[in-house]
Amino acid sequence: MSGSHVEVRLERPARGTGPVRVLALHGLAASGTSWRAYAEHAAPAVELWTAELPWGTAGPTDWSRGGDPAEWIGSALAAVPGGADVVVAHSFSAVLAVQYLAGVPRGERPRALVVVSPFHRADPADFHWDDAAHYLGIFQEVFEEALRLHAVRELAPQMRRDMAVLVRDRVGPYGWLRFWESYLRTPSVDTRGLGLPVLVVAGEDDRFAPPRDAAALAAALPQGRLELLRGCGHFPMSERPRLFADTVHRLIAEHIAAPSAAATRAS
């Protein structure tokens, strides 16, 4: 699949030598700006790259009508100069990152993975007809929550709802279907073959990706660890950025002993 709709940018250079390159992947109908609060609190060694993916706010409207969206995770990884040591992926991209990385050779994977607010179920029997209706019903609400957290100015509730409807309609039925298909595939992903440290981060108050999904994913991973963060919902990197950054830093300190050899110069 073409990588023409994937762009990466250096969001924040490392402060010092020997950086740890972190690639951050936004969720559905979001953008690289989702990670700005994390960038402010990330450890000095972190060289933070963000990706603009096809399912983002500025992406093409036809991304969802063909192909496997997980392949764009590979395009984002390939676009990072020098390669990524750690991938941090949120929500829809978290599902896709697990699916993609479980299917690629060990030498093509990052050295660690952080999945934030993931959707995951262990058994196909865990899905029911009512689940589809539920996620259709709350689809707009997650965009409202994102607008509440990330808008440059506070929006009146009705304006926020109206804007969320516009976002929902831009994603469209095909975009929702790509999300739902990816969710339905989670029980068949070879999580046992994902042989790298994986930190699973979830907000205790997440109404969209249930914390039990995060727990199920962490339990299915041979090197998985679950961190439930209090006082936040679906966007812990924005709601509790310092706590989130500290949690990611612990993973880096434990598992990335030898970071990338040279920093990337900011242009």
Rank of each mutant, 00 (worst) to 15 (best):
R111Q: 14
R192T: 04
V20I: 09
V88N: 07
L23I: 08
W129A: 15
V95G: 01
S238G: 15
V201E: 07
V189A: 09
V189C: 07
R230K: 07
V95L: 01
P157N: 10
A122S: 15
S93K: 07
V87G: 03
A112G: 11
R185A: 15
H5P: 03
P211N: 11
A257H: 13
F143C: 00
T61Y: 02
M1Y: 06
H134P: 01
P81C: 04
H90T: 06
A261H: 14
L155N: 06
F119M: 13
Y135G: 03
R225C: 02
D126S: 14
G16D: 06
L77E: 12
V98D: 03
A43I: 04
D162Q: 13
A133F: 12
M1L: 06
G16S: 04
A89D: 01
H150Q: 13
S93R: 05
R106S: 10
Q158M: 12
L221G: 01
V200K: 03
G233E: 13
A151H: 05
R178Q: 15
S64V: 02
P44W: 08
F208Y: 15
P259V: 05
A79Q: 09
H90N: 13
R250E: 00
A58S: 08
I252E: 10
G103F: 09
D169R: 02
G67Q: 11
H41T: 04
W63Q: 05
A58H: 08
R106G: 03
R153M: 14
R106V: 11
V152T: 15
V46T: 14
V98M: 05
I138T: 12
P60W: 02
Q99L: 09
Y183N: 12
A262E: 14
H90G: 07
D205L: 07
T191F: 04
L96H: 03
P157Q: 10
S31Q: 07
M163K: 02
I138H: 05
E108V: 06
D85K: 11
F179N: 01
A253G: 00
T33W: 15
E141W: 07
L23D: 00
Y183A: 15
W35H: 08
R265M: 00
